[in-house]
Amino acid sequence: MQILRILFLRLLTTLVTLAGVAVIVFFVIRVVPGNPIAMMLPPGATEADVARLSALYGLDKPLPTQFGIWVAGVMQGDFGTSITTRQPVLQLVLSRLPATLELSIMALVMAVILGGIAALVGTRRRGTGTEGAIDIANGMALSVPDFLWGLILILVFGVLVPVFHISGRVTPSLDLPFTTNFYLFESLLRLRFDLWADIVSHMFMPALALAIPLAAIIGQLLKQSLKETMNLDYVTLARTKGYGETRVILREALRNAALPTLTLVGVQFTFLIGGTVIIERLFSYEGLGNMAIDAVINRDLPLIQGIVILFAVIFVAVNMIVDLLYAVLNPRLRHA
């Protein structure tokens, strides 16, 4: 019952948060100077043309009415029509969402692997120069944001040693037999490893740029809690049983040390998703973030709204999933 109550309260505050995001975005972007309708029409269009088109998109009504219409639409899954492409916003946004999700998840996996290795090696060789080197590398990785790592990666692996693609999501000349936009997963399922390799070599650098700062955070925190766990009695017991140090770390300590890291990874994962906006731009990767920047530049109000709301929903969902995972994995909370 306790868990249900907490869940209900969580849902309630989440709804308040999303409503807040909706209100702020709606009113902020309506202050944007520059009439999107005037930008759509060819030069020489009359005042009447502008008025007619404004009415079509509902931009002639007072702001509160516009907001009411928009909210009523959103409730029915209608996020309006994009002004520049004249397609439904929901359809546009959902077509780009898979690209961003794949990029974020790949970055998360990379961060967990890199950070995990750093933490494990650092713990295994604690007190040596190796640990010092890992600490310094972690500090550097943490100080510099994804945007700069992206640029450095472009220089190193795009120009100096050109091994990866520096722009796009897939080589345009390739024929894609896909039915969904989850290219990475679908190419695997269809066993098209040639396409899969091409997609990965496009995704590798943007994903790595996003992963580096998060990997540093995971590395630091996990190493810290591993070292604390290594001094606990049950770990000493495992050692006296004659298990090797590596086995003690992997089999005994890791499980308990991973829990505090998990909560943090949740929050940091939302930061990573937020970072996709500029990283996608940097690598000309056709995801949500790139679309969002274009939408802002083109003053495409309905599209901006849709994208920001979608990002907010993703952020909130990630946080809730992490909380649930934490409750499931932490036995103390499960039985409370």
């Binding site: 944007v32 973030g289 920001v308």
Partner: peptide
């Protein structure tokens, strides 16, 4: 705290680009 929660649900880079579009 409620405002902090709402702010945390915005992707910061997108938010800043949006604000610059508004402010010029």
């Amino acid at each position: 705290s409620r405002f902090i929660d709402i702010w945390m649900a915005f992707p910061p880079v997108l938010f800043s680009i949006l604000l610059i579009a508004v402010l010029g």
